[in-house]
């Protein structure tokens, strides 16, 4: 799990073009949206594509993204559960 989280940090920074950030700046449990990292709805759509591209997991309804992308840990858990 921790390994996957570390990998996700790098992918997140790249996909969302978070120029100033290093993987160690992101806490696995902090909220990605709103108060935490401050991502928005467009970022959520970018992350949906990231899941499909890197992990072969499709999210059909963008609203489902809210729970999955709460934090890096929830994202990693979701990947573990859904990856074949």
């Amino acid at each position: 799990m921790e390994e996957l989280i570390e990998k996700l940090k790098v992918q997140l920074i790249e996909q969302l073009n978070l120029e100033d950030m290093e993987p160690e700046d992101i806490d696995a449990d902090e909220p990605l949206f709103g108060t935490g990292l401050g991502l928005d709805s467009i970022d959520a759509l970018e992350l949906i594509v990231l899941l499909e591209k890197e992990y072969g997991i499709k999210i059909q309804n963008p609203k489902d993204g809210q729970k999955v992308f709460f934090s890096l840990r929830t994202m990693a858990e979701f990947i573990k559960e859904n990856q074949k």
Partner: peptide, 9 residues
Amino acid sequence: GLLTPTSFI
């Protein structure tokens, strides 16, 4: 396939 929204927007 596998397109992202940012550049479109």
